[in-house]
């Protein structure tokens, strides 16, 4: 299986300003790839290089097995720009029909169904649409021709929570049908529930690429046990990954880093009446990556 996107040493400078440097990235067929980083880290630069909106200073990029300069490949991609501009008196319905026509034809029913799903207003002049409604039009045009590869730059910005849920459902459907998604965000929570892997970019450099599952395993969790009788503190001391241990009578509280196996086996020796295990806080890991690299945030942009 060839990669949907493969970049080798992909570098973009805007004059002296670094946009992206030495990016080696592979996006595999059928996965949802979350592309994370603070604003100005190089996410949009990467996306615009993949789509041939801008040209690399150095390095190579292939999309769906071809050079992005080949215009035909762009017909197999759906793209939602990070800063979507829709303006003028034209109605969204007409604009979508135009975009669909250039991409080889999209039925009116398909557009209508997506609009209904996202509760988008297609009949008002686009210049008068609210931010949220513009974003919905942007999502419709990205999804409507059922592209093999979806590139969504900050897709959830401006959407209310209900529409966000619907959008995430649409992304899952795309994955279920074997297609590929690249989705950028500056907030992990937006992508962690749908992504298979995440890449974290910071100041123009790729910091890490991780499986979401592996990231979860690394995550710090808060665990609480309640027993039917007081337990000795020694039984829980020195266990692998256990920190911030607090034993108060019959209850034990701690955080666990990595696998909870040793802790669970230690607790199993006593009679448990109740247990709480909080969802791993990926945000925290994410911030760790940020701050490790954060010391030298030299002029990276866009």
């Amino acid at each position: 299986m060839t990669a949907v996107v493969r970049t080798e040493g992909l570098t973009k400078f805007y004059g002296d300003r670094r946009g992206l440097e030495d990016l080696d990235l592979e996006i595999r067929p059928g996965e949802v790839f979350g592309y994370l980083g603070p604003n100005g880290a190089g996410k949009t630069t990467t996306i615009r290089l993949i789509l041939d909106v801008i040209r690399p200073t150095r390095g190579r990029v292939t999309v769906l097995g071809t050079d992005p300069r080949d215009a035909r490949v762009r017909g197999r991609i759906g793209y939602l720009p990070g800063e979507l501009a829709l303006e003028g008196r034209e109605r969204a319905r007409d604009y979508l029909a135009f975009l669909g026509g250039v991409r080889g034809g999209v039925s009116r029913e398909r557009i209508g169904a997506l609009a209904e799903r996202l509760e988008a207003d297609l009949s008002a002049p686009m210049g008068r649409l609210s931010k949220g409604n513009k974003q919905k039009v942007g999502l419709i045009q990205a999804f409507m021709h059922e592209p093999e590869f979806l590139i969504l730059d900050e897709p959830t910005s401006g959407l209310d929570p209900l529409v966000q849920q619907e959008f995430l459902a649409m992304v899952r459907e795309v994955r279920a049908s074997g297609r590929t998604v690249l989705m950028s965000s500056h907030v992990l929570a937006e992508v962690e529930n749908v992504s298979d892997r995440v890449g974290i970019v910071r100041a123009g450099r790729l910091v890490t690429v991780e499986d979401i599952a592996a990231l979860r395993e690394k995550a710090v969790r808060l665990v609480e046990f309640h027993f039917d009788a007081p337990v000795p503190r020694e039984a829980f001391e020195g266990l692998a990954g256990v920190r911030d241990l607090r034993v108060e009578g019959a209850s034990v509280r701690c955080t666990i880093d990595g696998r909870p196996d040793a802790l669970v086996k230690a607790a199993a020796r006593f009679t448990m009446v109740h247990m709480v295990c909080a969802e791993p806080d990926l945000e925290e890991i994410f911030l760790t990556y940020y701050s490790e690299e954060g010391e030298h945030h030299a002029g990276a942009g866009v």
């Binding site: 789509l51 793209y79 720009p81 800063e83 501009a85 303006e87």
Partner: peptide
Amino acid sequence: SGTLELTVTLPV
């Protein structure tokens, strides 16, 4: 105005 962004990503 930014509307060219989508136009140049069309298969044209």
